[in-house]
Design a protein around this nucleic acid. Sequence first.
DNA 1: GCCCAACCTTGACCCAGATCAATTCACATG
DNA 2: CATGTGAATTGATCTGGGTCAAGGTTGGGC
Lengths: 244, 244
Amino acid sequence: MNFILNTRIKCSECPIRHRAVCSRCDEDELAELEAIKNYRTFAPGDTILWRGDELQYVGSVVKGVATLGKTLEDGRTQMVGLLLPSDFIGRPGRSQVDFDITAVNEVTLCCFDRAPFEKMLHSVPHLSQRLIEIAMDELDAAREWMLLLGRKTAREKMATFIEMLASRQQIEGLSELPTDLALPLTRDEIANFLGLTLETVSRQLSQLKKEGVLEFSGRRQFTVLDYAALHDATGDDSDGGPII
Amino acid sequence: MNFILNTRIKCSECPIRHRAVCSRCDEDELAELEAIKNYRTFAPGDTILWRGDELQYVGSVVKGVATLGKTLEDGRTQMVGLLLPSDFIGRPGRSQVDFDITAVNEVTLCCFDRAPFEKMLHSVPHLSQRLIEIAMDELDAAREWMLLLGRKTAREKMATFIEMLASRQQIEGLSELPTDLALPLTRDEIANFLGLTLETVSRQLSQLKKEGVLEFSGRRQFTVLDYAALHDATGDDSDGGPII
DNA sequence: GCCCAACCTTGACCCAGATCAATTCACATG
DNA sequence: CATGTGAATTGATCTGGGTCAAGGTTGGGC
């Protein structure tokens, strides 16, 4: 599962390289983007957008973690997207949204107002190309996730999730995966991500700890002692993850 | 779950309105598309594309049914996409594919070669807009499917699948859902779609038959006697399906 | 440095759906 | 119209993960 892109550029003030803008934009185009740029901040637990509401902007997560969640009639929920810093948020050509977007912790978004952004899309062809690529990557991630939800065991789900976290927390350009990782979500939220219950998540983490694959230094902070064993537990092909 | 789009136009020879071309294309643009158009046919069971192969074209399904499938190391598989007539196939800006595409029965594709199509994308902005919309719709469908795989019971999965089939076999422009439906897949393939086993699929269908919701007139041909009961069984909000 | 509430862990038990195992059915073929 | 075959049904049994319940941790706030 790979939400990261190779080609991202840094916004003048944003601390991150992000996906909403394109590495091929020239000075004028970047200035145009700057002009319609603004920041929004949300408190932990805030609903950034309710299902059915109009999304008035597109943009990127600069800081914090947000989730996309869907709910059944009786209240069962499934997370269908996880937004980490640099991830794109927005639906050009579609205003309404069929899921809730919720801030897990304090979230800062770097936004571009929808109307001018879409106008710009029409005049700057490579921005459209960029968005198509982003959408194709998200579709790949969604399909990887469908395989996880439909066919993987609790243990495989957990291992896959940790491997994904590691690749997202990897320092750019470095080939080594980081050994010290932070869990951005509670057990309950992880369960929601993986289609499990919080008890099962807890048991799987305990099991991986007992086997010496992970070592915890706090509830949400841990070290991966054995990446090979972790990957073996994912059930994925040994060649290591999706192609993309 | 909704794979259908409102705006589709009919190709000169294709018997269907399809998604690869845009309703806003003018005569010249359509002529340009016609020039790079060609048809491909696949026999039942044929693999249209293997994981990792290059997809040399984009296009639409004209006839037949195809599936996108992903496989784990030990052979477990999950269907991650179902291609029915009018569905778009292709990954502009991405050549490789991270899943297998398989023909369920005899499949005819209306294809546009990738290189000229992508060149045209750059010069015709509204074609890019169109593709972004298609990708957003597929992302919505994928997320709906994730909710199904992660949280629905076998019964809810089955009911949702039948409801989706009905909406796909609905006659365009008609508000009524068709009562007589054909299953385009075997029990095994349905199981693969829903993250179940073929035995469970069979049992759920028998149950719905026993309850008088469905009536079978052959193994793959049936009538929906009670759409209300069917919808109740989906677990979805009563307002009826995704917004889009 | 104590407190408390949210978060997490662990155990006991249960059940939906998987697995294993026979039949039975639909229908294409000669 | 018999007949062979892959597809489907149905039953018996098993089990992974859900559910219910009872403590533990931990870290922020005062």
